[in-house]
Structures are given as structure tokens and as C-alpha cells.
Nucleic acid binder design. Structure first.
Length: 457
RNA sequence: GUCCCCAUAGUCUAGUGGUUAGGACAUGGCCCUCUCAAGGCUAAGACACGGGUUCGAGUCCCGUUGGGGACGCCA
């Protein structure tokens, strides 16, 4: 039997990295088994659902490189389907109307907590039928529902712990625990891979499958991502939206790789291409404990992907991410800049660094880091710099590394100074700072006129 | 509070009864070096606790502790 999975976000917010991870797991699982990966937009909550969020979620998925099969399924367009199933449950006696007021229910809940009991509905309307209000699903009076979770193993929940939950609101619109079942069954979903926070919903849903005479899928509940304080990851821990990571200069490859490895592993391997992941991934090897997000490791991966990226691709990426001003969009593709780029990539943690490292080379005028200038451009070194300028000027071209090095060596000997001093001073004058790729290499790559100009002190 | 789940270093993890408990990030040191990175080498650092089962337990069972999650006419 072929595998069919789905990712089912609700467009009530941006794509959270936790959500992104479950999407990735679904995606990888489907691709690994050569099955289908569907997308379902859970927009039954009309009040809170917004098109803008939906767009952002779709964009984030695309950015991460997840393509889904077929067209997205919108729950808001399937009310008739849900209603026909609700009617079935009503007719078969698996559901009933309830007109208890919110106040009544709240009071009941508080009382249950105070009496140290599980807060479940009293079943008042189940025992005294009414014919209006919300519709509740009847949970069997005794027994338990068990299922085998691919990640967590066997899970069993007693029916006394589950309340007769609402499957349709007073206005007739269906709620989550009911629509998931109808849709998963209708879409032929074979495996549900979702967040750990749904474990307690699973028995409710299995009971609905049974009441409807449908076959439940297998379930794989992936543990949560936690913040550094081990609480559920939220905004106060820092960035949680996929788009925030994009804006901060992370590569989708890095985020993707990081998120997969958070809670899943394959021997000692840390770095995976998507192809390797498709080949190696399976739900059975997802860990069963929650994982703390570690930005340092994400940064390490990001740096790795940045430095291993082909300069041509990096150039395109810098442009498409809007990091390159219009005036340099063509210039950045020139051969000299392209030669410098890998050296800059090697030193970059984020996309922004990769562009910034190029700026001194692209711009005509640079600004000096005052501290670096003060430290290295000393009165003693100035005459040597002038001399350096004179010597470089004599060369017909600066692109011979050996010739450039020879000039520096000669100056060091002549003035009995350290290579460090002259190299750092030259670096400050040419790049504006005391941190850059090798200064000799830079000189050989740079326009001669520009080099001479900057060496004028 | 009730129920469900989880438990190897600061963090992510390998480990499926016999290992000097392996790898990665972060941290310290060394090497390389014109700066900064990168890279190489190296150091320190873990089986939460208590009972069992077993010749033998990180690994199996029970309990304790700790942590997380769920308890909506949200999804």
C-alpha cells in the first residue's frame, strides 16, 4: 500500500519552526516511500483564519524546498461533507445536542479541578435530551482506547478521561477533532505525523473513525521543540517563525538540515543533502523525547552551507534575498568579485555577512573602522605605506601574487618591521577594517587604481 | 489538580544485555597564520535516583524524582 501523508496547518499565524519540522517529517516520509504529500488548510475557524497567514505558510514551505502533491484542500469549502457525516452520527446515536451554557460548563470545570478530578463534561444533555445547541460526540461509558504510536509506542487512555467533546458549534460548523477524521479518511491518509500535543486527541479521533465505520490511519506523534528553559518554544525564546530565520540570513538548506536532525538521527551523520535525507529518513527513528533548540548549532550548520555553496548560486541568492543594492547587481557578477566571494563565504555565518564582506571591494569610497585605523595606521608605518604604494605602482599589473609578496618582503627587511604590522595597516587602508580575507590575495584581485588610491595616506 | 508522554555531558544525539559509553554544537589548549574565519590535533564533560530480573544492565521490569504536553463552541 502506498503511503499518503498530509501537513495541515491552520492559517491563524505564521509557520512556526515546530510546524515546519512536522511538515518536513511528513514530506521526507512521503518522498522516502514514494507516496503522496498533501497540504490541507484547516480554516474552520473563520474568525481567526487569514489569507495573509496562508500565503506566508505556503511561501515558507516553498522556501524550505517542500513541494506538495495536488492542490491544497480547504476545510472551509467542505462544510457539506462534514454536515453529512454529522447527520450520520446523530442518526446512529453516536452524537447528541447540548444546550448547556458557557457559564454552566465553566463552573463544572472549576468544580472538577477543585475536587481533583479530570475536567470532563457532566453529560447532562446526554441523559436529558434537547434538540438544539452544539453537537457532542458520545464517548463510551467504560473501557479504554489503545493505539500503537510509531514513535511513542503503545498508548492507552481510559474513556472516563475523555469528555463528550463538541463536534459542531451552535451555528452548525464542525470543529477540529471531527474535521480531521473526515478529511484524513476522505483523503486516504495512511499515516498521521503531527505534534506531540495531539496525543490526547487521538483516542477521540479513533472513536469517531469507529463510529463512522472507517479505518483509522497509523499515528506518529513527534515530540515538541523546547526553548532553552525547556518550556514549549515560544516567541519569548527568540525567533519562532520560519520567515524570521530567512530574514536573519539563514539558508533554507541549513534550517531544513537542522530541524530534521533535531529529534531524528542517522548514526553519526550531521550534514545531509535533501537526497540523502529522502533516502535515509523514516518515522521509526524519530526520537521520543522533546528537544531543546540550539541556535549555536544551527549557526554552525548555516556557516557550513554558506561556505560550501557555489559562488554563482551564492550570488543569485544574495540578489534574490534583496541584499545587493541595485547599483551592484551586475557588478557583483564580474569575475574579480566572483574570485573574492568564496573567501568571504568562508568567513560568513549569515547571508548578510557574505554581502558585507564584499562591500569594500564594490564601493568606491570606504569608511574606516576608527579603532582599527588608530591601532594600525601609526606614524611609523605611514612612510612604509607610501613606499609600498610606490612599489606597487611600478608593477604593470597587480595580479601576480608572487610579485606582490616580494614587495612586502623587501619592505619588511628594509625597515626591519613585522609582516603583521604592514599587513594589518594595508588591510585597514584597503578594506576599512582589520578583518578580511588575505590581504595579498585581495590586492591581486583588486583594480590597481583603487589599490593605489586607498594606499594614499 | 487529573490524565498522557519523556529521561545518555550545557545542547542535539549513537547505543537495542557484555563498548576504554561513540559523534556533533558550544567551551579550554595546541598547530596553522598577515587579521578574522576555516581546517587539523587535543582536553574537560553524561547513562537522574532507588529497587528488582540476570553471571552481567545505559539497555528489560517496578517505583521515586524531575521535565513536558493535554484538559475550549482553537487547531
Amino acid at each position: 500500500m502506498s503511503v499518503i501523508v498530509r501537513f495541515a496547518p491552520s492559517p491563524t499565524g505564521y509557520l512556526h519552526i515546530g510546524g515546519a519540522r512536522t511538515a518536513i517529517f511528513n514530506y521526507l516520509y512521503a518522498r522516502h516511500h514514494k507516496g503522496k504529500f498533501y497540504l490541507r488548510i484547516e480554516d474552520t475557524d473563520i474568525e481567526r483564519s487569514e489569507k495573509q497567514y496562508e500565503d506566508e505558510i505556503l511561501e515558507s514551505m516553498q522556501w524550505l524546498g517542500m513541494d506538495y502533491d495536488g492542490d491544497p484542500v480547504y476545510q472551509s469549502k467542505r462544510t457539506d461533507l462534514y454536515k453529512s457525516y454529522i447527520k450520520k452520527l446523530l442518526e446512529s446515536g453516536h452524537a447528541y445536542f447540548c444546550n448547556c451554557s458557557k457559564e454552566e460548563l465553566d463552573a463544572e470545570r472549576e468544580r472538577a479541578m477543585a475536587e481533583k478530578r479530570k475536567a470532563v463534561y457532566s453529560k447532562k444533555c446526554r441523559n436529558n435530551p434537547v434538540n438544539e445547541g452544539v453537537i457532542r460526540f458520545k464517548i463510551p461509558e467504560s473501557g479504554a482506547t489503545k493505539f500503537v504510536d510509531t514513535i511513542l509506542g503503545e498508548i492507552s487512555i481510559n474513556h472516563e478521561e475523555i469528555e463528550d467533546f463538541v463536534i459542531a458549534r451552535a451555528d452548525g460548523s464542525p470543529t477540529y477533532n471531527f474535521t480531521v477524521v473526515v478529511d484524513d479518511a476522505d483523503m486516504g491518509i495512511t499515516t498521521v505525523i503531527r505534534g506531540d500535543d495531539h496525543v490526547n486527541n487521538t483516542p477521540k479521533q479513533i472513536l469517531i473513525y469507529q463510529a463512522l465505520g472507517l479505518m483509522p490511519p497509523t499515528f506518529a506523534h513527534v515530540p515538541m521543540i523546547l526553548g532553552s528553559d525547556k518550556k514549549k518554544l515560544s516567541k519569548r525564546h527568540g525567533a519562532t517563525a520560519v520567515t524570521q530565520y530567512r530574514k536573519a540570513g539563514y539558508l533554507p538548506e541549513a534550517l531544513f538540515n537542522y530541524l530534521v536532525r533535531l529529534g531524528w538521527s542517522h548514526g553519526d551523520q550531521e550534514i545531509f543533502t535533501k537526497e540523502e535525507l529522502v533516502k535515509a529518513f523514516d518515522t521509526g527513528s524519530i526520537g521520543s523525547s522533546a528537544a531543546v533548540l540550539n541556535v549555536e548549532k544551527l549557526n554552525w550548520l548555516n556557516a557550513h552551507y554558506i561556505k560550501s555553496m557555489d559562488p554563482k548560486d551564492m550570488t543569485e541568492r544574495l540578489i534574490s534575498e534583496g541584499l545587493v543594492p541595485d547599483e551592484f547587481k551586475n557588478r557583483i557578477k564580474d569575475a574579480d568579485v566572483q574570485r573574492l566571494l568564496p573567501m568571504v563565504q568562508e568567513r560568513s555565518k549569515f547571508l548578510g555577512d557574505a554581502y558585507k564582506g564584499l562591500e569594500f571591494f564594490l564601493k568606491d569610497k570606504i569608511e574606516y573602522d576608527p579603532k582599527a585605523y588608530e591601532k594600525y595606521i601609526t606614524p611609523e608605518i605611514k612612510p612604509v605605506l607610501s613606499e609600498l604604494k610606490g612599489e606597487l605602482e611600478k608593477l604593470s599589473s597587480l595580479d601576480d601574487l608572487k610579485a606582490v609578496e616580494a614587495i612586502f618582503t623587501a619592505l619588511i627587511e628594509k625597515h626591519n618591521i613585522n609582516l603583521k604590522n604592514i599587513a594589518q595597516a594595508t588591510r585597514v587602508l584597503i578594506t576599512g577594517t582589520d578583518i578580511s580575507p588575505g590581504i595579498f590575495e585581495i590586492i591581486t584581485m583588486m583594480d590597481k587604481k583603487k589599490v593605489l588610491e586607498r594606499l594614499s595616506v
